[in-house]
Design a protein around this nucleic acid. Sequence first.
RNA 1: GACCCCAUCGUCUAGAGGCCUAGGACGUCACCCUUUCACGGUGAAGACACGGGUUCGACUCCCGUUGGGGUCGCCA
Length: 446
Amino acid sequence: MTTSVRFAPSPTGLLHVGNARAAIVNWLFARSRGGSFMLRLDDTDQARSNAEYAARIEEDLRWLGLGWDRFARQSDRLARYQAAAEALRAKGRLYPAYETEEELARQRALRRARRLPPVYDRSALALGAAERARLEAEGRRPHWRFLLEAGSTAWTDGIRGEVRIDAATVSDPVLIRADGTPLYTFCSVVDDIDFGITDVIRGEDHVTNTLTQIQLFHALGAAPPVFAHFALLVGTDGEALSKREAALSLASLRETGIEPMAVASLIARLGTADPVEPRQTLAELVAGFDLSRFGRAAARFDEAELKHLSARILHGMDFARAAPRLREIGLAAAGEEFWRAVRGNLETMADARHWWRVVAGPLAGVIEAPEYLAQAAALLPPEPWGGDVWREWTAALRERTGRKGRTLFHPLRLALTAREHGPEMHNLLPLIGRERAQARLAGRTA
RNA sequence: GACCCCAUCGUCUAGAGGCCUAGGACGUCACCCUUUCACGGUGAAGACACGGGUUCGACUCCCGUUGGGGUCGCCA
């Protein structure tokens, strides 16, 4: 059977690095097996889902370069869930319960106080027809619970190995709300069956869901897919990453100039036995991708590491890849020579703007030693310039002024680029040109 | 609180009883390159959480302690 996976975010917020990890891991898994990748919007929570977030999710996935082969939206499939619920009722696996949310909360608190696991006591199961009729006459509408089979459910997890969970430690899950709408746990299984999902790869926060979902697959007459649960990411201080969701949204990382391949390079490797290395393409990440390389302990996500990786990706980016990006930031005229000269000094792509002003103007240099710069301007070789113009020029200057090292170079760099640090002047000067250089050495904007 | 999972350099990890004076990657530091800076290159420092067992022998197995993560929703 062809490998088929899905990424199923709920459009209730922006994608953050945690979600992105699920997306990338699933995508890489599919590609590494020649399978297909599906985007499914889990929007059954009508109150919290909205179209704006749905659009942003698609935008973020495209930014990462993760295209999808198939797309579905749970809100379009309500009839399917209803039919599946009917099938479960017919099998006696779905039963009505009438407790209010307050009542349930009170029961949980009580059991906790008694040091018992806060599991639903199934009292609704004991209700007779007359009892139910009375409750409904009171105006109560039932929610519907899935009757779990007793005993333990086991599966071979693609990352965690043998996992076994006892149904006694879990409540019968609510599948249908009192307002008649279905819940994620249920829709997800119906979708996975209908779309022929072969592998479900998600965070370890879903492991207990897996018990009920495996039982659901069986109850609906389908074979469960292979499950794999990766450990969650934590912050540098070891705290849950979810507390920093806003700051670590893909949208905000993108805004701060993080390269999408930096996100992918880090998140696909963090917590695995493979080294985190700057990669230029997702294809490089696909090669050698293997779920068994993932560890079971929570890994720390460090934004500083991400920034560093992002810079290194820029440093190694070839011009073909950089050209469209340069166009995006308004540097359509920037050519390969320019790119090769400056890429090693970029932290973010936006930094290229400054270096473009250095070579194309207008730029006001920083004047440190006016007399020296006047001498320098006078000694600037006549055009046409060869590739060694910087060497020739500074050699002549050294001879004339007796300056050397920092005192020789630093004022020139400041006057020509307005920066303390930067690319090799040897490469930059020919791009700046004689006229512009002369003006800047004289303190004029050019 | 109950249950599940985890615990090796600062960070991500390799290690499935002797191969380990514990390997790699990132970061850090030093040196080299650059007649400046950055980029790049080379090298160095740096860890088995703690306490008990088991064993001829434990980073590796068992128990406990401590610490961390997860779950316990009419969220996903």
